Computed example of a mutant assay.
Amino acid sequence: MKLKLIPLLLASATMLPGCFEDKTNDAEGIPPAPAVTKENAAAAVNGVYIGKTTLETLEKELAQRSQGQTLPKEQLLEELIQRELLIQQAKQKHLDKTPELVERLNTVKNSLLSQAAIQDYLKTNPITDEDVKKEYDSKMANLGAEYKARHILVKTEDEAKKLIAELEKGADFTALAKKHSIDPMGSEGGDLGWFTADRMVAPFSEAVVALENGKFTKQPVQTQFGWHVILREDSRALTPPPLEAVKEQIRSLLQREKVQAFIENLRKTAQVEILLPPAVEAKPEAEAKPAEEAAPAAAPAPAPAEEKPAK
């Protein structure tokens, strides 16, 4: 059966450190990767063994990237065989000694090392279920309320005041909205449904929060859209989602915060010297040059506007 390369896996940075021998390991005190023997190999290419663990790593990586989807083991092994052939070809041409590739390999290695430092920190300083529950309780306690309201939007304050006067005489809010509101929801009687205060512009939301259920604004409320008359129909406390539904999101958030604090602490205790010159903000051309240099010396000054002859 003819098998094809898998481009996504071919470009996988995770596998790169095992593909090229890193000559700097001994100098940096980093032990070389364990030697692969025939007993723990999945295949051999021109005498070079491909380890079973390499195949397993590739399987796990693919499963993570494709959300659990897998490929036949023989197809993955063929990918590694073809990759090893390309590696051997690159080494024969000494491509692994070029400054560009050495720099890229160092970048990959440093990226993996930084990720390893983060994983090690989280392993020794894990986010516990108790931490997640505490954060959940804190967020849900301040969840706030949501409101159900209607409004009538008109162009002028006087129009809004006239509508308020009609409402005080007992006019039906929905009927007035359908007749006078210029808002698209006017045809629905100005019904805005349920919403949280942060979804509306500040003057509008502040007016809604200040009202009691069943009451309308006694003064018009101005926003950039016009003038509003608002009826707060109802309100209710927001129902928090179950802990089980959001615990992983909370855990991820706490992990990011913990890692950020960890890195900031490392920065504080390190000796960091910025060697690049500070960036210079470009000034407007008019400010960058003296006034006398902005125009040729011989150019006559324009006459003031008030001195120009009338046509």
Rank of each mutant, 00 (worst) to 15 (best):
M15W: 05
S138W: 09
L5Q: 08
P290C: 04
P302H: 10
Q88S: 08
N125M: 00
N213G: 05
E168A: 10
V229E: 01
L243A: 07
D191A: 04
G51E: 02
K148D: 02
Q75L: 10
G18N: 05
E206Q: 12
T196D: 04
P278R: 03
E78Y: 12
T54D: 08
E292R: 07
P277D: 03
N46C: 12
T128S: 15
E281W: 03
Q115E: 04
L105S: 06
Q88W: 08
T107S: 07
D158W: 01
L77A: 08
A305C: 04
E281K: 07
I250F: 12
A305I: 05
E287L: 13
V259N: 09
E28H: 05
T174P: 00
K133W: 03
A303V: 15
A42K: 07
A160Q: 01
G18R: 06
S12E: 11
S12H: 07
C19L: 15
T223R: 04
E61D: 13
L231C: 00
A207Y: 01
E59L: 11
P72W: 00
E130P: 01
L275E: 09
L231R: 00
R150H: 15
M185N: 15
A44K: 12
Y147W: 04
A310W: 06
K283D: 00
N106H: 13
